[in-house]
Amino acid sequence: MIKKIRIFLALALVVASSLVLVPLQMLSMKTGLWPETFILKIWHRMILRALGMRVHVKGTLSTQRPLLVAANHISWTDIMVLGSFADVKFIARADMAGWPLIGMLSKLQRTVFIERERKRSSGDQASEIANRMAKGDAMVLFAEGSTADGNVVMPFKSTLFGAASMAISEGAAQTVFIQPVAIAYTRLHGVPLGRRHRPIAAWIGDEDLMPHLKVLMSEGALDVEVHFGEPVAFSKGSNRKETAKLMEREVRAMMQAALADPRPSR
């Protein structure tokens, strides 16, 4: 009964906040009345509040531009987590555009949707991301190409770093900065999550969205940590595969440190 009440209240909060914030974001995008991420940050925070998630941040988003953020990926909630405090835009898989609420939210923050299976379109997609970075947008790349279970970081795909190479080859920038960022879901109701229970937060592969959303709303009280590493300069002579491996190592080390010694819940 308590879980049903929690789900009802969470849904009510999401719907009420969306009814107010969606028109404001649309107005902001048309008029520039507020910074583009101002309303989005509030919206992300309201969704996290509805889900009962608390965010702990170590480090800061780099001020260097153009900037590509290379992060691990555990769940669709990663977007809300990062978007709740950082001025970033996202690179997401194409099917997310059709998701209820999440798809709308993504479009309202000018997410770049990519179709990883269609190689013919990869050049155009990389070019769009490169142009966005050149204009000053910090773009978040979930470099594993899929979601993991919250216990491990999967290999980073070097092909996904093509936007950095294209920004340089097209003359949009001489150097692109790539910053490693680790996301770790660490506690449930204040108790550290062990390997067995971390997948509660994970949304893996082709799992249906609604059952996972229901689990998160009924459980509540998840703690998530975001750790920012030092950005690395990527230039004309840089190697994509080596850079991908470096980012992977950095993210894995930060994630394991967060899991081994999670910050206190608050």
Results as ranks from 00 to 15, higher is better:
Val55Met: 04
Ala202Met: 06
Ala253Pro: 04
Val69Gly: 05
Thr37Pro: 01
Leu101Gly: 03
Arg45Ile: 01
Ser127Lys: 14
Ile39Gly: 00
Lys41Asn: 04
Ala10Trp: 04
Pro155Trp: 06
Ala164Cys: 09
Arg65Pro: 08
Leu40His: 13
Ala173Leu: 10
Ala173Val: 08
Ala182Gly: 06
Ala71Pro: 05
His56Cys: 10
Leu216Gln: 13
Trp99Thr: 05
Ala97Thr: 09
Val88Cys: 01
Ser238Leu: 07
Leu9Ser: 09
Asp149Trp: 00
Phe8Ser: 14
Gln109Arg: 12
Ala184Leu: 02
Arg118Glu: 10
Val20Trp: 09
Val251Ile: 11
Leu61Gln: 05
Ala97Val: 13
Lys107Cys: 10
Met254Asp: 07
Met255Arg: 04
His212Ser: 06
Glu36Arg: 15
Pro199Cys: 11
Ile5Thr: 08
Ser218Asn: 06
Phe177Cys: 02
Asp206Gly: 10
Pro262Lys: 01
Trp203Met: 06
Ala258Thr: 01
Leu209Gly: 06
Ile204Tyr: 11
Glu36Phe: 08
Gln109Pro: 02
Ile178Asp: 03
Leu67Gly: 01
Ala71His: 04
Arg93Gly: 08
Ala16Cys: 09
Lys89Ile: 06
Thr159Cys: 07
Ala143Trp: 00
Ala182Trp: 02
Leu40Val: 14
Ala148Cys: 14
Ile7Tyr: 12
His56Pro: 01
Asp261Ser: 13
Asp95Cys: 07
Leu21Glu: 14
Ile102Gly: 00
Leu11Ile: 12
Ser28Asp: 15
Leu24Phe: 12
Glu225Thr: 01
Met210Glu: 14
Ile2Glu: 11
Lys135Asp: 10
Glu225Leu: 00
Leu160Thr: 10
Gln109Val: 07
Arg252Glu: 13
Leu105Ser: 14
Pro35Ala: 14
Gln179Asn: 07
Val251Pro: 04
Arg93Ile: 08
Tyr185Leu: 02
Glu248Gly: 10
Met1Asn: 07
Ala92Tyr: 02
Leu216Trp: 10
Gln174Met: 08
Ala94Gly: 04
Ser62Ile: 05
Ala184Gln: 00
Val251Cys: 08
Val112Ser: 00
Gly205Ile: 06
Arg49Pro: 03
Lys245Cys: 05
Phe142Ser: 11
Ala16Val: 12
Asn72Phe: 03
Thr159Asn: 12
Glu36Asn: 13
Thr243Ile: 09
Ala172Asn: 09
Arg116Val: 07
Ala253His: 08
Ala134Tyr: 05
Glu225Asn: 02
Ile129Tyr: 03
Ala16Ser: 11
Leu48Arg: 04
Lys236Ala: 13
Val55Cys: 05
Phe177Thr: 03
Gly145Ser: 13
Ala253Trp: 06
Arg252Lys: 14
Val57Phe: 13
Arg249Val: 07
Val152Pro: 01
Gln174His: 12
Phe142Cys: 14
Leu101Lys: 05
Ala97Cys: 08
Ala71Cys: 15
Leu13Asn: 15
Ile47Trp: 15
Asn131Asp: 12
Ala134Lys: 03
Ser158Pro: 13
Phe161His: 08
Ala143Val: 02
Arg49Gly: 15
Asp223Ala: 11
Pro100Thr: 06
Met210Val: 15
Lys157Met: 13
Ser122His: 06
Glu170Met: 13
